Amino acid sequence: MKIYIRYMVSRRCKMAVEQALMRMGLQYIRVDLGMAELREDITEEQKARLKRLLHETGLELIEDKKDRVVEQIKTTVIESIYYCGTPLKVPFSAYLSRKLNLNYTYLSNLFTASQGITITHFMISHKIERVKELIEYNELTFSEIAFKMHYSSIGHLSNQFKKMTGTTLSFYKTHGQKRDINIENL
């Protein structure tokens, strides 16, 4: 049985889900961002208890099918930005459609209706937050950040950064504007 979980966007979240499942004595096959696959079905009573345990850690069980698809889209975007070391060999739209086994137009319309922004805008927002994080680490040059984030050039990164933040990469780096946004809140 698969269960889907909202706001599960980091390894820390995965650990919280694993701990909740262990506390309940539920055996799982795997826990990934946004979902857990259990060895067997759970009762309504177990589901209610799991909801409470997840809520304590800021997570939420998703039961509505459309909400699950939207969360899967978000999770796929986050995985591609934060955890994928190599660029995709196909356009993201094709990758997403193939991964979720649904038509991209359907996914795009569903996401926009639910979130009020496009998948592309959601993805760019996360990429820019990741760029800010990499700038704050102060370990990579702007060119290295552009390469790591799969931008075609530093110019492309610079233009997108300026458009999204209203400031340049250099200004952001020298003025140390600290990010106060968690990826769960984007």
Results as ranks from 00 to 15, higher is better:
184 E>Q: 13
184 E>A: 10
53 L>H: 08
14 K>L: 11
175 H>L: 03
183 I>Y: 10
121 H>V: 10
147 F>M: 03
3 I>V: 06
152 S>W: 00
57 T>G: 03
52 R>Q: 12
53 L>Q: 11
66 K>R: 14
64 D>A: 09
72 Q>R: 14
29 I>R: 12
15 M>S: 14
167 T>M: 03
97 S>N: 12
183 I>F: 09
170 S>H: 07
185 N>M: 12
75 T>G: 13
40 E>L: 02
139 E>H: 15
29 I>S: 09
170 S>D: 08
76 T>P: 06
138 N>K: 14
119 I>W: 03
47 K>A: 10
96 L>N: 06
125 S>W: 12
50 L>C: 08
39 R>A: 13
42 I>F: 04
105 T>G: 04
77 V>D: 01
49 R>D: 11
35 M>Y: 13
140 L>Q: 12
8 M>E: 07
129 E>K: 13
24 M>F: 11
83 Y>C: 02
24 M>S: 01
38 L>E: 08
65 K>V: 10
31 V>Q: 02
143 S>T: 11
75 T>H: 09
99 K>G: 00
57 T>M: 10
77 V>W: 01
34 G>W: 01
18 E>L: 02
155 G>K: 07
15 M>D: 12
44 E>K: 08
88 L>H: 15
132 K>T: 02
94 A>P: 01
121 H>M: 07
113 A>Y: 04
15 M>I: 12
177 Q>P: 00
184 E>W: 05
71 E>M: 04
57 T>E: 15
180 D>M: 09
42 I>S: 05
39 R>Y: 14
12 R>C: 08
86 T>L: 12
116 G>A: 07
12 R>I: 09
105 T>R: 12
33 L>I: 15
58 G>W: 07
26 L>G: 09
78 I>S: 01
111 F>D: 00
8 M>V: 01
58 G>Q: 10
77 V>T: 05
105 T>S: 11
59 L>N: 07
147 F>R: 10
60 E>Y: 07
126 H>S: 06
16 A>V: 01
71 E>S: 06
101 N>L: 10
25 G>Y: 08
125 S>A: 11
172 Y>P: 01
22 M>P: 00
175 H>Q: 11
11 R>K: 08
156 H>Q: 10
154 I>G: 14
161 F>W: 09
73 I>N: 02
151 Y>A: 03
22 M>L: 08
28 Y>W: 09
153 S>T: 11
14 K>S: 13
99 K>D: 04
56 E>V: 04
146 A>R: 01
163 K>L: 10
92 F>K: 03
75 T>P: 04
69 V>R: 00
122 F>P: 04
81 I>G: 00
173 K>V: 02
133 E>A: 14
76 T>I: 00
106 Y>N: 09
45 E>L: 12
93 S>D: 11
15 M>E: 14
155 G>F: 05
137 Y>G: 11
31 V>Y: 04
125 S>D: 12
98 R>N: 15
41 D>A: 13
8 M>W: 01
173 K>R: 15
124 I>R: 13
183 I>S: 07
56 E>I: 05
35 M>L: 07
65 K>C: 05
126 H>A: 02
87 P>L: 01
2 K>S: 03
38 L>M: 04
48 A>H: 11
179 R>V: 12
68 R>W: 04
64 D>R: 14
81 I>C: 06
89 K>S: 15
157 L>N: 04
99 K>R: 15
109 N>R: 15
37 E>G: 04
151 Y>T: 03
4 Y>T: 00
106 Y>T: 11
49 R>G: 07
141 T>S: 15
158 S>L: 09
